[in-house]
Design a binder for these strands. Structure first.
Lengths: 215, 215, 215, 215
DNA sequence: ACGTGCGGGACGCCCCGTTTGT
DNA sequence: ACAAACGGGGCGTCCCGCACGT
């Protein structure tokens, strides 16, 4: 009569809804990241998780809903972790951005896969309003988080006062995504490296420093 | 009375292989541009053209081959027409680029649809090497055409000598594609307008002029 | 009240995987027997069973796999039932064989349809190794079962000692299949009747008896 | 006005209807023999002949008609050449039959391909009455030709009088086809060799000779 | 509540034997 | 004699319910 949750007592496995759900999200993200949303079959995800179809459709209403959840529960947190948290906590926004950009992986597989956010946006935005809105929200947070940091940097005297924080944030994101696409299509890490260097150069030009020229 | 122009009695229709082929390419481009390659069914293309399946598969070996042909025969020429020819023939590369960028359509449908080259690259590059290679070739031509024009501009004293033509060309393309994606996902022409303005500003900074500052 | 046999409320229908699978096998066999494997469409089988495509492809990976299963699960058992079991259990192999051969149906439809094993072998052996191997196994079992019975008959003194059991088994099968093909093409039961009579005559000549002549 | 048949004067090639027709028949036979009628596409035949589709459909009303023509113009003559002519002209029918049977090819490819007549009969008889009738006619000629020779042999005192010529002819054909099928499915020339030996043995038993026993 | 097995069909791409205009 | 066009059908895939055990 007592004994609640006997499932989690000894055996990991056997009825663990959260784990199942998470497993699915992880696998879904991985496959979608690799091949795109449309060409990822639910069976592929299932095969990668040892979860059955019924279980998937218990946790998610549809493949589409799974995709939405991937955006919100995988891509969103990842964005926050890699960009927004550092920016919120960092002392100098420009240095933080530089450090973020410089730690972008240039491993061939990553270069070929591109940026999850960008990939999904390109593929699904025109096809599904649910995707588009969620992705737009992500981009918005990204841009706003960056802009806010820049603004803070301005008030701290670390960032040039003559720049438009929001415009610069957008510019940064555009540049970044642009280079990622180029590198993805070229399947060439060098392209991305050049891009990163350019971005970093541009970022330095935003700093208030002894001499801020640009070339 | 004389010179019946190539067997057409009075109107279009009736046995015109080139026309059929072109019809298919146009329609395929339109649908792919709208919905992506994968979500475009051959039947959709057929319905849009009043062409039969047999005719399609007479002209193209497969849906994939049709896609490849779209790249080579629609997207390629379009790129050449909008970018490469003006650049080759224009007097001042920077002015030409500015004029090209400024004539980019910001009509909502176009903004929402994005850039055909970019769309296909994002969707198909990881899935199909045939697509990837063809698209990479396009990007390469685009970049080389731009770089060459810049180089010519340098030798004519119209472009700053301290810039790297190829790097700048890549940068331009990355910036452009980046903004297009942002605008596409936001479904907001304003985003693209801002981007265009930024790009134009940057382009001006490349010119050899009285005072070339940047902000 | 007790022992509700496995969830069926009152009648057939409603979730019965084995039944579905068997239905498909039966129908597939029937259609293949009638028209050959290639000209049997899966939709025909589906229509004959009120089973949907999803169900079929749940139970079988492909049309080909269905064909293989038909050989193993329908033709195989049928061969064992009609030939191998009687031969294994019968007292006198020759008498058993005679009885088997004499109970071959000479109904016009059966004559026109031919021998399932032979039909498939002729049609599919050169086209699909999977078919060929499975069919070869059937022929082998048939021949070995017959040979073994003849050998047993020899040791019991019921079959002439001067015959080669395996050669005779092959001969019997060849003769049988040969006549079946002739009758099938002629669409004439008489042809088969003559064949049966010849086979029976030959079989009697194998017996150890008072006077064993042949005509 | 004079100069008929200018086509065959100097250039072999270029407009030669009979040659085209024959080319098609040969290729059709070859492909059908290899893969069966249904799985042979017209394009395969075309590719093997450098003939266009239009030409094929000029010479034959349909694929079916082509198949019929193959029976009548390739398989028929071949049968006559290999069996009927020798039997009609030979001095001793049994010896002739033995010689025919012993010159059957046991090359692996031939064994695997089987007997053209039998193949087509098995595949097409239940599907197409036009095929069936033509093939039945072939079998009939074969059987009648053999029977007639046996009868002649009887009147010449070279063949046992107590046998039924027509029944024996059928038996020979059945045996032959039976072994061919067995060998085809087994893909084993040995099977056919054994069969040939058995057939020859049986044929010898039909001769009027010193001692005519059978085993 | 959580998970499973079986089944449901609509669609997807493509091939195939044919005909038609030239 | 041929290139071009015709469509119907072929097989297989895909995302998803539904009835049931635990």
């Amino acid at each position: 009569m007592l004994v609640r949750k006997k499932s989690t007592t000894n055996a990991t496995r056997r009825r663990n809804p959260e784990r199942t759900r998470d497993l699915l999200l992880q696998a879904a993200f991985r496959e979608i990241y690799r091949s795109g949303f449309q060409s990822t079959g639910v069976d592929t995800i299932l095969a990668a998780t040892n979860v059955t179809k019924g279980a998937l459709y218990y946790h998610f209403d549809s493949k589409e809903a799974l995709g939405h959840a991937v955006i919100e529960e995988i891509i969103g947190p990842s964005l926050r972790k890699r960009w927004l948290h550092p920016l919120r906590n960092g002392a100098d926004p420009i240095e933080t951005l530089i450090s973020i950009v410089q730690t972008i992986s240039v491993r061939p597989e990553v270069v070929s896969a591109g940026c999850p956010l960008n990939n999904l946006a390109q593929e699904m935005s025109p096809l599904d309003e649910g995707f588009r809105k969620r992705l737009a929200k992500m981009f918005h947070q990204w841009q706003q988080g960056t802009a806010m940091a820049l603004r803070k940097g301005q008030s701290q005297g670390k960032v040039r006062r003559d720049l438009d924080p929001e415009g610069s944030a957008s510019f940064l994101i555009a540049m970044y995504e642009g280079y990622v696409v180029l590198a993805k299509n070229a399947q060439d890490p060098k392209v991305l490296n050049v891009g990163i260097r350019n971005i970093v150069g541009w970022l330095r030009s935003l700093q208030v420093s002894r001499n801020h020229k640009r070339g």
